[in-house]
Computed example of a mutant assay.
Amino acid sequence: MELASGGDLFSKIRKMGKLKEPAARRYFQQLVSAIHFCHQNGVSHRDIKPHNLLLDGKGNLKISDFGLSALKNEGVNGGFLLQTACGTPAFTAPEVMSRRGYDGSKADAWSCGVILFFLLSASLPFDDSNLAVMYRKIHKGEYQLPSCLPKSVKSIINQLLDPNPNKRMSIEALMKHPWFLKKFELPTKSSVFGSDYKEYCKFDKSAAGGINAFDLISLSSGLDLSGLFEVKHARDRRFTSSETVERVMERVREVGGRLGYRVEEGKVGGAIGLGKGRVGLVFEVWEIVEKLLVVEVKVVERGGVEFEDLHWGELKEGLGDVVLQWNDDAM
């Protein structure tokens, strides 16, 4: 897990007071981008509040506490609408508390509106010691915007805090708003190999000058000692080949490209990455003896996505002309 050394956003605002517009926009952009990513993958957070927004050592915002989150298929009768009343009252959309079916993404949009209000004023739009009074204000959308806020910000907050979810600004629409887009940097696609190539490749052949006995032992399924030091992913594969390293890598590039993967070269020889969406494959080629290669295929999965058997089948079929045997063929 990551260390959020910067603490939570609630404590930061309570200590420093309201943020200037550029700083507030930066945090808000990171929040909305992350929530949009969740929604794209069918997840509604349902408990967005500054206590759950953590900061790392560089001041980047991280969303935490997905304990109340829900998937689309957890809605009413397996549909899109959710029913469970949950969250923190001051940050929760009115339709969530009404115990009727609601759209989780629209509920998250409301909470984002409360967060934007909090960032720029160090106060909450709906805050009352009497919970019944607070609920009434939330359902009616009764709040007072600070006069010092720019008109563009007031417009966004008013559209996000619309009690009618059908009229409320969506996260998609918000991300197209000129105020939101100012100095907004789209996140770049992460490399298949990750920030540290050796995270997925144990050996650096360019430094070792080839494979040695200890490497060979770790590659052997019958004498695999790696379990003493790491946990291998159950979806990883391995195959042997009598082709050259160059020929195998060439075929991986060709097949990967044909199947719609993004092709990346490793930082050391004998490694290629294939990426598609949030799943990546790292191919490492090892020359055991002349005309005998072992190719390890390591799966890099992000966001809970699994590499399905169908995709393995496509790759196995495409690489068939350079494969002697896959490690699971005899299973």
Rank of each mutant, 00 (worst) to 15 (best):
L9Q: 00
I13C: 08
R14N: 12
G17S: 08
R25G: 02
R26C: 05
V32L: 06
A34P: 07
Q40V: 04
N41M: 08
N41W: 13
N41C: 11
S44F: 02
S44L: 06
I48V: 13
N52I: 05
K58L: 13
L61T: 08
I63Q: 07
I63N: 08
V76I: 15
G79Y: 14
G79C: 10
F80E: 03
L81F: 15
A85R: 13
P89F: 08
P89T: 07
P94R: 01
R100S: 10
G104V: 00
D108S: 02
S111E: 01
G113K: 00
L116C: 07
S121K: 04
S123H: 05
F126I: 05
N130A: 09
N130C: 15
Y135K: 11
Y135Q: 06
R136W: 07
H139N: 12
Y143P: 12
V153I: 15
S155T: 15
I156E: 02
L161N: 06
M169E: 00
E172V: 15
M175Y: 11
P178V: 09
E199V: 15
Y200Q: 10
A207K: 09
I211L: 09
D215K: 00
I217D: 12
L225V: 10
S226F: 02
S226M: 07
E230V: 14
E230C: 13
E230T: 03
R237V: 03
R237D: 03
R237I: 03
F239H: 01
T240P: 00
T244C: 03
E246M: 04
V248C: 14
V248P: 02
R251P: 02
R262W: 10
K267E: 13
G269F: 08
A271C: 10
A271R: 07
I272L: 12
G273F: 04
W286Y: 12
V289G: 00
K291V: 12
V299H: 02
V305L: 14
V305Q: 15
F307G: 02
E308M: 06
D309I: 10
L310T: 07
L319N: 01
G320P: 06
D321G: 03
V323Q: 04
W326G: 07
N327A: 14
D328W: 14
